[in-house]
């Protein structure tokens, strides 16, 4: 299955939500599996999380798989607090590709 990894920037928030949304949607259109790497993410807010949920809904409609990977403990804590860890597939990237 073809796949791609999208590396997020430091910010997953209101400042750049439309930018990362476009990047991920492009990947979903072209790949059966999209991994979103959080390795660089430092700042995250509700805007970023809301966009991620929208993207997940879109990927389900397209019958594509979406994985979140390389989450630092603090980011994972936020995913757990919001229970989004039950909505998203979260794992280390088994198809880790170079940046």
């Amino acid at each position: 299955m073809n796949h791609d990894t999208v590396y997020l920037d430091e910010k997953l928030n209101k400042e750049n939500s439309s930018e990362f949304k476009r990047k991920i949607l492009d990947s979903i259109e072209e790949n059966e599996i999209t991994f979103i790497s959080f390795k660089n993410v430092i700042y995250i807010d509700k805007e970023g999380l809301t966009i991620l949920i929208e993207i997940l809904e879109y990927s389900k409609k397209q019958s594509r798989e979406l994985w979140l990977c390389e989450l630092k403990p603090e980011i994972l804590e936020i995913m757990t607090f919001t229970n989004l860890n039950n909505l998203f597939k979260i794992n280390n990237n088994p198809y880790k590709s170079p940046e």
Partner: peptide, 12 residues
Amino acid sequence: AESAAATIALLS
């Protein structure tokens, strides 16, 4: 209570 806080934030 935690779920309520998180959801209020998402819907804020």
